[in-house]
Amino acid sequence: MNGDGTAADLPRVLFVGGLGRSGSTLLELLLAQSPDVCAVGEVVHLWERALGADERCGCGERFTACPFWRQVGEHAFGGWSTVDRDEVLALKDRVDRTRHIPRLARASLAPAELADVRRYADLYTRIYRAATKVTGARVVVDSSKHASLAFALRWAEGLDLRVLHLVRDSRAVAYSWGKQVRRPEVVDGEDFMPTFSPFEVSKLWTAQNAAFHLLASRASVLRLRYEDFTADPAGTVRRLREFAGLPDDPAALRILTGDDSRSARPAPGGDPEPSPPASPVRVHSVAGNPLRFSGGPLQVRRDEAWRSRLPRRSRAVVSLATLPFRVRYGYLGQRGSDSVETS
Rank of each mutant, 00 (worst) to 15 (best):
G3K: 02
G5F: 01
A8G: 01
L14S: 02
S22Q: 03
S24V: 06
L27T: 02
A39Q: 07
W47M: 08
R56D: 07
C57P: 00
C59N: 14
A65W: 07
F68Q: 13
V72A: 11
V72W: 11
D84G: 05
D86N: 12
A90L: 12
R94G: 01
I101F: 01
S108D: 09
L109S: 03
A112P: 00
E113G: 04
V117T: 05
V117S: 05
Y120L: 05
D122K: 00
Y124N: 08
R126H: 05
R126C: 01
Y128R: 10
R129F: 00
A131C: 15
A147H: 10
S148E: 10
A150V: 03
A150H: 03
W155M: 06
W155D: 00
R162C: 08
V167Q: 12
V173Q: 03
A174G: 09
Y175D: 05
G178K: 02
E185I: 01
G189T: 08
E190P: 02
M193L: 13
T195I: 12
P198Q: 09
S202T: 09
S202E: 05
S220H: 13
R223Y: 04
E227S: 09
D248N: 03
P250I: 03
L253A: 03
I255F: 07
I255M: 12
T257G: 15
G258Y: 12
P268Y: 06
G269I: 09
P272N: 07
V286H: 00
R292A: 06
W306H: 13
R313F: 15
G330R: 12
R335D: 15
S337I: 04
